[in-house]
Protein backbone atom coordinates (compact mmCIF):
# COMPACT_ATOMS: atom_id res chain seq x y z
CA UNK A 1 0.00 0.00 0.00
CA UNK A 2 1.61 3.24 -1.16
CA UNK A 3 1.64 6.20 1.22
CA UNK A 4 2.95 9.74 1.01
CA UNK A 5 6.61 9.87 2.06
CA UNK A 6 7.55 13.39 0.93
CA UNK A 7 5.27 16.38 0.77
CA UNK A 8 6.09 19.91 -0.35
CA UNK A 9 3.47 22.58 0.27
CA UNK A 10 3.50 26.22 -0.80
CA UNK A 11 7.29 26.28 -1.06
CA UNK A 12 8.92 29.59 -1.93
CA UNK A 13 12.67 30.07 -2.16
CA UNK A 14 15.01 32.88 -3.14
CA UNK A 15 18.67 33.68 -3.57
CA UNK A 16 18.85 37.02 -1.81
CA UNK A 17 16.42 39.33 -3.55
CA UNK A 18 15.95 37.01 -6.54
CA UNK A 19 12.93 34.81 -5.99
CA UNK A 20 13.41 31.42 -7.64
CA UNK A 21 10.58 29.13 -6.52
CA UNK A 22 6.93 30.12 -6.32
CA UNK A 23 4.32 28.17 -4.33
CA UNK A 24 5.58 24.70 -5.16
CA UNK A 25 3.24 21.85 -4.21
CA UNK A 26 4.33 18.31 -4.83
CA UNK A 27 4.36 14.88 -3.27
CA UNK A 28 6.21 11.58 -3.55
CA UNK A 29 4.76 8.26 -2.42
CA UNK A 30 6.61 5.20 -1.19
CA UNK A 31 7.94 3.07 -4.01
CA UNK A 32 7.54 5.89 -6.50
CA UNK A 33 9.94 7.48 -8.91
CA UNK A 34 8.95 11.09 -9.39
CA UNK A 35 10.68 13.24 -11.99
CA UNK A 36 10.96 16.99 -12.37
CA UNK A 37 11.52 18.21 -15.90
CA UNK A 38 12.14 21.69 -17.15
CA UNK A 39 14.57 23.92 -18.98
CA UNK A 40 17.88 25.06 -17.55
CA UNK A 41 17.26 27.75 -14.97
CA UNK A 42 13.70 26.66 -14.29
CA UNK A 43 14.49 26.13 -10.61
CA UNK A 44 14.73 22.32 -10.47
CA UNK A 45 18.06 22.16 -8.64
CA UNK A 46 16.94 24.93 -6.29
CA UNK A 47 13.88 22.83 -5.50
CA UNK A 48 16.02 19.83 -4.54
CA UNK A 49 18.37 22.02 -2.50
CA UNK A 50 15.42 23.53 -0.65
CA UNK A 51 14.08 20.09 0.20
CA UNK A 52 17.54 18.88 1.26
CA UNK A 53 18.02 21.84 3.62
CA UNK A 54 20.79 23.56 1.67
CA UNK A 55 18.61 26.54 0.90
CA UNK A 56 16.26 27.87 3.52
CA UNK A 57 12.79 28.35 2.00
CA UNK A 58 11.29 31.80 2.45
CA UNK A 59 7.94 30.16 3.15
CA UNK A 60 6.12 26.87 2.80
CA UNK A 61 6.83 23.46 4.23
CA UNK A 62 8.66 20.25 3.41
CA UNK A 63 7.49 17.15 5.26
CA UNK A 64 8.93 13.65 5.09
CA UNK A 65 7.26 10.73 6.79
CA UNK A 66 5.16 13.16 8.86
CA UNK A 67 8.24 15.06 10.07
CA UNK A 68 8.76 18.70 9.20
CA UNK A 69 12.09 19.10 7.41
CA UNK A 70 11.88 22.85 6.79
CA UNK A 71 14.25 24.58 9.16
CA UNK A 72 16.35 21.47 9.71
CA UNK A 73 20.07 21.66 8.94
CA UNK A 74 21.12 19.83 5.80
CA UNK A 75 23.06 17.18 7.74
CA UNK A 76 19.99 16.50 9.89
CA UNK A 77 17.83 16.15 6.78
CA UNK A 78 20.34 13.61 5.43
CA UNK A 79 20.43 11.79 8.77
CA UNK A 80 16.65 11.64 8.74
CA UNK A 81 16.80 9.79 5.45
CA UNK A 82 16.31 12.37 2.73
CA UNK A 83 19.56 12.39 0.80
CA UNK A 84 20.66 14.66 -1.98
CA UNK A 85 22.91 13.52 -4.81
CA UNK A 86 24.15 16.63 -6.59
CA UNK A 87 24.62 17.08 -10.29
CA UNK A 88 28.36 17.64 -10.47
CA UNK A 89 29.40 14.05 -9.60
CA UNK A 90 32.15 15.39 -7.36
CA UNK A 91 33.02 12.49 -5.12
CA UNK A 92 35.81 12.82 -2.55
CA UNK A 93 38.50 12.38 -5.15
CA UNK A 94 41.41 11.93 -2.73
CA UNK A 95 39.66 9.04 -1.01
CA UNK A 96 39.37 5.52 -2.38
CA UNK A 97 36.05 3.99 -3.38
CA UNK A 98 36.16 1.97 -0.17
CA UNK A 99 36.72 5.09 1.94
CA UNK A 100 33.90 6.90 0.14
CA UNK A 101 31.58 4.02 0.97
CA UNK A 102 32.86 3.92 4.54
CA UNK A 103 31.86 7.55 4.90
CA UNK A 104 28.33 6.58 3.90
CA UNK A 105 28.37 3.59 6.25
CA UNK A 106 29.74 5.46 9.25
CA UNK A 107 27.09 8.17 8.95
CA UNK A 108 24.24 5.67 8.73
CA UNK A 109 25.74 2.77 10.73
CA UNK A 110 24.86 0.56 7.77
CA UNK A 111 27.90 -1.53 6.89
CA UNK A 112 26.07 -3.92 4.59
CA UNK A 113 27.60 -3.20 1.20
CA UNK A 114 26.03 -6.24 -0.45
CA UNK A 115 23.11 -4.18 -1.69
CA UNK A 116 25.47 -1.60 -3.17
CA UNK A 117 27.54 -4.28 -4.90
CA UNK A 118 24.34 -5.96 -6.11
CA UNK A 119 23.28 -2.76 -7.86
CA UNK A 120 26.76 -1.81 -9.03
CA UNK A 121 28.99 -4.93 -9.26
CA UNK A 122 31.76 -2.92 -10.89
CA UNK A 123 32.41 -1.06 -7.65
CA UNK A 124 33.75 -4.28 -6.12
CA UNK A 125 36.65 -4.16 -8.59
CA UNK A 126 37.36 -0.50 -7.93
CA UNK A 127 37.46 -0.53 -4.12
CA UNK A 128 41.08 0.55 -3.74
CA UNK A 129 41.04 3.08 -6.55
CA UNK A 130 41.00 6.77 -5.75
CA UNK A 131 37.58 8.17 -6.57
CA UNK A 132 39.24 10.96 -8.51
CA UNK A 133 40.43 8.34 -11.00
CA UNK A 134 36.95 7.02 -11.78
CA UNK A 135 35.02 7.72 -14.96
CA UNK A 136 31.83 9.81 -14.83
CA UNK A 137 29.62 6.72 -14.82
CA UNK A 138 31.64 5.05 -12.07
CA UNK A 139 31.45 8.20 -9.96
CA UNK A 140 27.69 8.29 -10.38
CA UNK A 141 27.51 4.64 -9.29
CA UNK A 142 29.63 5.45 -6.26
CA UNK A 143 27.51 8.45 -5.30
CA UNK A 144 24.27 6.51 -5.60
CA UNK A 145 25.77 3.46 -3.87
CA UNK A 146 26.98 5.60 -1.00
CA UNK A 147 23.65 7.36 -0.71
CA UNK A 148 21.54 4.19 -0.49
CA UNK A 149 23.46 2.96 2.55
CA UNK A 150 21.19 3.16 5.57
CA UNK A 151 18.12 2.73 3.35
CA UNK A 152 17.11 6.37 3.07
CA UNK A 153 13.44 7.24 2.75
CA UNK A 154 13.90 9.46 -0.28
CA UNK A 155 16.76 10.09 -2.68
CA UNK A 156 16.90 13.46 -4.38
CA UNK A 157 18.97 12.98 -7.53
CA UNK A 158 20.02 15.90 -9.68
CA UNK A 159 20.61 15.17 -13.38
CA UNK A 160 21.92 11.62 -12.83
CA UNK A 161 22.56 10.85 -16.49
CA UNK A 162 24.18 14.10 -17.56
CA UNK A 163 27.33 13.38 -19.53
CA UNK A 164 27.06 9.60 -19.21
CA UNK A 165 27.44 7.03 -21.99
CA UNK A 166 24.18 5.44 -23.25
CA UNK A 167 25.19 2.05 -21.86
CA UNK A 168 25.55 3.47 -18.36
CA UNK A 169 22.25 5.33 -18.70
CA UNK A 170 20.50 2.06 -19.60
CA UNK A 171 22.04 0.41 -16.54
CA UNK A 172 20.98 3.27 -14.29
CA UNK A 173 17.44 3.00 -15.63
CA UNK A 174 17.00 -0.53 -14.31
CA UNK A 175 18.92 0.26 -11.13
CA UNK A 176 16.60 3.18 -10.32
CA UNK A 177 13.63 0.85 -10.71
CA UNK A 178 15.17 -1.64 -8.27
CA UNK A 179 16.14 1.05 -5.76
CA UNK A 180 12.64 2.51 -5.82
CA UNK A 181 11.29 -0.71 -4.32
CA UNK A 182 12.95 0.33 -1.06
CA UNK A 183 13.61 4.05 -1.44
CA UNK A 184 11.48 6.63 -3.20
CA UNK A 185 13.26 8.73 -5.79
CA UNK A 186 12.78 12.35 -6.76
CA UNK A 187 14.83 12.91 -9.89
CA UNK A 188 15.58 16.09 -11.78
CA UNK A 189 16.31 15.00 -15.32
CA UNK A 190 16.39 16.40 -18.85
CA UNK A 191 16.63 13.02 -20.54
CA UNK A 192 12.94 12.70 -21.41
CA UNK A 193 13.01 9.11 -22.79
CA UNK A 194 14.55 8.00 -19.48
CA UNK A 195 12.00 9.99 -17.50
CA UNK A 196 9.15 8.46 -19.45
CA UNK A 197 10.57 4.97 -18.99
CA UNK A 198 10.93 5.07 -15.24
CA UNK A 199 8.79 7.85 -13.73
CA UNK A 200 5.50 7.18 -11.99
CA UNK A 201 4.77 10.87 -11.85
CA UNK A 202 6.24 13.90 -13.60
CA UNK A 203 6.21 17.53 -12.56
CA UNK A 204 6.99 20.10 -15.22
CA UNK A 205 8.79 23.12 -13.78
CA UNK A 206 8.92 26.44 -15.56
CA UNK A 207 10.15 29.78 -14.23
CA UNK A 208 10.09 28.47 -10.68
CA UNK A 209 6.52 27.20 -10.84
CA UNK A 210 5.03 23.78 -11.35
CA UNK A 211 3.07 24.17 -14.55
CA UNK A 212 1.90 20.59 -14.97
CA UNK A 213 1.60 17.32 -13.14
CA UNK A 214 1.48 14.11 -15.14
CA UNK A 215 0.16 11.79 -12.50
CA UNK A 216 -0.18 8.43 -14.20
CA UNK A 217 1.86 6.23 -16.48
CA UNK A 218 -0.51 6.66 -19.42
CA UNK A 219 -0.18 10.42 -19.48
CA UNK A 220 3.62 10.38 -19.27
CA UNK A 221 5.18 10.61 -22.71
CA UNK A 222 8.01 12.53 -24.34
CA UNK A 223 5.51 14.60 -26.30
CA UNK A 224 3.52 15.41 -23.16
CA UNK A 225 6.66 16.47 -21.29
CA UNK A 226 7.97 18.53 -24.21
CA UNK A 227 4.83 20.63 -24.21
CA UNK A 228 5.96 22.23 -20.97
CA UNK A 229 9.61 22.81 -21.83
Amino acid sequence: MSREILSVKGLNAAYGEAKVLFDIDMSVNTGQIVACVGRNGAGKTTLLKSIAGFLKPTSGSVTADNTLLSGMKSYDVAKFGVKYIPQDKKVFFDLTVRENLELGSYATKDYNWDQVIAYFPKLRLLMERKAGHLSGGERQMLMIGRAILGRPKVLLIDEPTEGLAPGIVAQLKSTFREISLKTSLLIVEQNLPLVCAIADKVYAVKDGRIVAELGDKESISVAACERYL
Binding site: F54, S74, Y75, A78, K90, L95, A107, R146
Partner: peptide, 24 residues
Protein backbone atom coordinates in the same frame (compact mmCIF):
# COMPACT_ATOMS: atom_id res chain seq x y z
CA UNK B 1 40.24 5.74 10.53
CA UNK B 2 36.91 6.83 9.18
CA UNK B 3 37.40 10.07 11.11
CA UNK B 4 40.54 10.72 9.06
CA UNK B 5 38.51 10.18 5.92
CA UNK B 6 35.87 12.60 7.25
CA UNK B 7 38.55 15.23 7.82
CA UNK B 8 39.87 14.81 4.29
CA UNK B 9 36.33 14.89 2.94
CA UNK B 10 35.55 18.14 4.72
CA UNK B 11 38.74 19.58 3.23
CA UNK B 12 37.80 18.44 -0.27
CA UNK B 13 34.16 19.49 -0.20
CA UNK B 14 32.32 20.26 2.99
CA UNK B 15 28.92 20.48 1.34
CA UNK B 16 29.19 16.98 -0.04
CA UNK B 17 29.90 15.67 3.42
CA UNK B 18 26.73 17.27 4.71
CA UNK B 19 24.77 15.40 2.03
CA UNK B 20 25.78 12.23 3.88
CA UNK B 21 24.60 13.53 7.23
CA UNK B 22 27.88 14.72 8.73
CA UNK B 23 28.24 17.88 10.78
CA UNK B 24 31.36 19.60 9.45
Amino acid sequence: SIYGACCLATKINENKLQFLGYHN
